[in-house]
Amino acid sequence: MPYITRWSAEKTPALHVVATRAGRIGYADERPYDRDSDGVLWTRVPSLPGKGRPEFGSVHALRQQRAMRELLCQVCGRAADRDADGALWLLGEDADDPAFRAADITTTHPPLCLPCALKSVRACPHLRGRYVAVRARRCELAGVRGALYRPGFPAPIAVGVTGVAFGDPRIPWVRAGQLVMRLREFTVTSLERGPVAP
């Protein structure tokens, strides 16, 4: 079972989101661990891996955050595969798209170890249809993906789910559920043969 997958017992409790005097959202009963070291508010969710049924397609916020920060495999939770070309990532992209090869990539999907990457492309319906394996020599946390709020009365109003970069003035109004990583200096690779010629 993928390390970052959420389980049915890991239900998000009812959370009362409020506007704070600091000009950002918070919880009415906010606790110190509800925010990360950058002051971003995170979805509060219990950690009960293996309890209930796996909810494929749903990501556990804290395990995804840990996998991104520590470059852990999103499937097994151990160290992601790294070599001279960098950490291994699988992306649902078109490798032939010129924009893909020219740009930095942002993703909410943590890296993988090679054995789990090989299993994933065989087992995951999304990856079976299309994937690109890349090695990134440089990666940096770029922002968060989560519920964006706007001021409202008597409480802030959720306006949708989006990605927001660190430094964006909207970030104090996001309840984060996933970290976003920017991959730089990446090489398209084959899981079996190594780097792919451009």
Rank of each mutant, 00 (worst) to 15 (best):
Y33D: 12
D29N: 13
C76A: 05
P54R: 14
S58A: 15
D36I: 01
P46H: 15
D38G: 05
R53N: 15
D34M: 00
D81E: 15
P46W: 14
G52P: 11
P49T: 11
R35S: 03
Y33E: 11
D36S: 06
D34A: 00
L48G: 03
D34P: 00
D29I: 07
D38S: 11
V75T: 11
S37H: 13
A61N: 12
S47K: 06
R44H: 04
D38I: 02
L48H: 09
G52H: 12
D34W: 00
W42S: 02
P32D: 09
A79R: 08
C76S: 05
A61V: 10
R66E: 05
S47P: 01
G77E: 01
H60W: 10
V45I: 14
P32Y: 07
Y33I: 02
G50I: 01
A61M: 10
D34V: 00
V59C: 13
Q64Y: 07
D36P: 03
P49Q: 13
M68C: 14
G57F: 08
G77W: 02
R53W: 10
E55F: 09
D83E: 07
Q65D: 10
R82A: 13
A79S: 10
R78C: 02
T43N: 13
R78G: 07
L41H: 03
K51V: 09
W42T: 01
G52R: 11
P46D: 15
G50P: 06
L72P: 05
D83T: 04
K51M: 08
R53S: 15
G77Q: 04
C73L: 07
Y33N: 09
V40C: 03
R44E: 04
P54M: 13
A79K: 07
P32R: 12
R63A: 05
A61I: 06
G39S: 06
D83M: 08
D81C: 12
R66Q: 10
C73G: 05
A61S: 15
D29W: 04
V40K: 00
G39M: 05
L62R: 14
H60Y: 09
V40M: 00
D36Q: 02
R66M: 04
R35N: 03
L72E: 03
R31N: 00
K51P: 01
K51A: 14
E30D: 12
K51Y: 08
A79Q: 07
S47V: 04
L48N: 09
R63E: 09
